[in-house]
């Protein structure tokens, strides 16, 4: 049997909000160590890697490894039925054809069960090579969302240029152009407001706004986002999920023609 309980269903709601614009369906791999999801968007431009560790759950039991194909839109609809303060339990039997979501109100006077059919999926698991990145940037996730939103008005892509001076985000299009520069700021009053730039080599990479604007939907999960970049490899955009795990988005760059 598989059973995973989270006192804060809000975490799972936020996780679904963070993937529902990119993925229509995904395989949830459940094992003793936790829940993992690796899935590409339909255009195979980006990849989502989600990891929720078993020790981060309030209760976790997984007697045998399970691969459960789930509709993300259906799961998202079900999670919308949970109250903000509800506890959520995911439950499935061995060789399951469905998974049950159980929502319990804080004072235990309401118990709701939603059963969702699993789907058979041909899964294509990709190996992600170990990479040492030449630029690693940590910044407030709200700031990154804002930059992506603001620059998206000017073009379909954003160029990330990292140098000793800091990081410059720029976009240009028919209306004109815009750029936003950030410098390192480790003196911020609060740790979550810091901008930390670790640059080994300067670089310039261009990424599609469409995907960046999907990634920033993970902003409510974490105050900080980490961007890891090297020339000619996918961007890694990482958000920690409390003490339970992380969500990493990989995005293939746009290449000069």
């Amino acid at each position: 049997m598989f059973e995973a309980r989270l006192v804060q269903s809000a975490i799972l709601k936020k996780v679904l909000d963070a993937v529902k614009d990119l993925l229509t369906e995904a395989t949830f791999e459940c094992s003793d160590s936790g829940i993992q999801v690796q899935a590409m968007d339909s255009a195979h431009v980006s990849l989502v890697s989600l990891n929720l560790r078993s020790d981060g759950f309030d209760k976790y039991r997984c007697d045998r490894n399970l691969s459960m194909g789930m509709s993300i839109s259906c799961m998202s609809k079900i999670l919308r039925c949970a109250g903000a303060e509800d506890t959520v339990t995911l439950r499935a039997w061995d060789n399951p054809e469905s998974i049950t979501f159980i929502f319990e109100s804080p004072n235990k006077d309401k118990l709701a069960e939603y059963e969702m059919k699993l789907i058979n999926m041909d899964q294509e698991h990709l190996g992600i090579p170990e990479t040492s990145y030449s630029c690693v940037i940590k910044m407030p996730s709200g700031e990154f969302s804002r930059i992506c939103r603001d620059l998206s008005q000017f073009g379909e892509s954003i160029t990330f240029a990292c140098s000793k001076e800091g990081i410059k985000f720029s976009a240009s299009g028919d209306y004109g152009s815009a750029n936003i520069k950030l410098v390192q700021n480790t003196d911020a009053d609060k740790e979550e407001e810091a901008v930390v730039i670790d640059m080994q080599e300067p670089l310039k990479l261009t990424f599609a706004c469409r995907y960046l604007n999907c990634f920033v939907k993970a902003g409510p999960l974490c105050n900080q986002v980490q961007l890891s970049m090297s020339d000619d490899v996918p961007l890694v955009c990482e958000y920690k999920i409390g003490d339970i795990g992380h969500i990493k988005y990989y995005l293939a760059p746009k290449i000069d023609d």
């Binding site: 980006s46 990849l47 698991h125 990709l126 992600i128 261009t206 996918p234 990989y250 293939a252 746009k254």
Partner: peptide, 14 residues
Amino acid sequence: KHSQAKITSFFTKA
């Protein structure tokens, strides 16, 4: 002009 690369050109099937 830029063209969009695929993630599958960087990561191989495991």
